[in-house]
């Protein structure tokens, strides 16, 4: 019998999905077949390695959540003390005038924003030109990806335009070109409802947040809350944090 990756996954993680006969037969094969035994060990190590990595990543996130500050003690003479105090006053005054939008909006944006993965399958991508665009997007070469998406837009049917506008918008957000991102996200929302509608609304809310326009961000989040999609909970969490 052939044991595929899915079977080994179940054996390692969800044995209750297998019958006792299937487990016994698999273990007998593992004993006899060196290659299968190695495959099992490799897949087990891969799963442990994956968990190890994401544990480390989460631990870093926890550390950053409330970084412990270790203060060093400096001994300053009188002149240094005056200089430090003067610099602090300057920093506070400058900060008061310069830091708009507010830090909280910026922080919220940063903690929620991440580039959307490319979910357009090769078969759906069509012509070579557009395949290049998605490949450039995956590589993070957003400026070139935008050029390719743009040239493709002219030759596309109205129903094919939403994904192009969507990925152009995310590329623009990555390049900090927020007006262009907004324009493209609005075009996705104007087109017929599809699988990019809720993601586009989510990114539009984040974009408004980045622009410190919480009122508009809240409007989009409210729509998402009632969308019965995976974005509903995210929208509620962000809405509560606003």
């Amino acid at each position: 019998m052939e044991y595929d990756q899915h079977f080994i996954d179940n054996y390692l993680r969800q044995k209750h999905l297998l019958t006792s006969e299937e487990i016994a037969s698999f273990e007998a094969h593992v004993k006899e077949n060196k290659a299968l035994a190695e495959e099992l060990r490799l897949q087990e190590d891969l799963i442990l390695g994956i968990n190890h990595f994401f544990d480390k990543e989460l631990k870093e996130k926890l550390k950053e959540a409330n970084p412990s500050t270790s203060l060093k003690v400096f001994s300053l003479n009188q002149n240094q003390t005056i200089a430090v105090a003067a610099s602090l006053v300057l920093l506070i005054v400058a900060g008061f005038f310069l830091f708009k939008p507010s830090l909280s909006s910026e922080q919220l944006y940063l903690s929620y924003y991440q580039a959307y993965p490319n979910i357009v399958e090769p078969a759906e991508r069509g012509q070579e030109n557009i395949q290049d665009a998605y490949a450039l997007y995956e590589k993070g070469d957003y400026a070139k990806a935008i050029e390719k998406f743009e040239s493709q837009l002219a030759n596309s049917q109205p129903t094919e335009k939403a994904p192009l506008h969507f990925y152009m918008a995310i590329s623009a957000m990555e390049l900090n070109d927020l007006p262009s991102a907004e324009e493209n996200l609005l075009k996705v929302l104007e087109s017929e409802k599809g699988r990019f509608t809720n993601p586009a609304r989510w990114y539009l809310a984040l974009l408004y947040l980045r622009n410190n326009n919480t009122e508009k961000a809240e409007e989009e989040l409210k729509i998402l809350q009632g969308s019965n999609s995976s974005y509903a909970q995210k929208a509620t969490d962000l809405f509560e944090a606003l």
Binding site: G49, I50, H52
Partner: peptide
Amino acid sequence: RQKLIANMI
């Protein structure tokens, strides 16, 4: 090997 895999991820 698991540490090596974590680096790949």
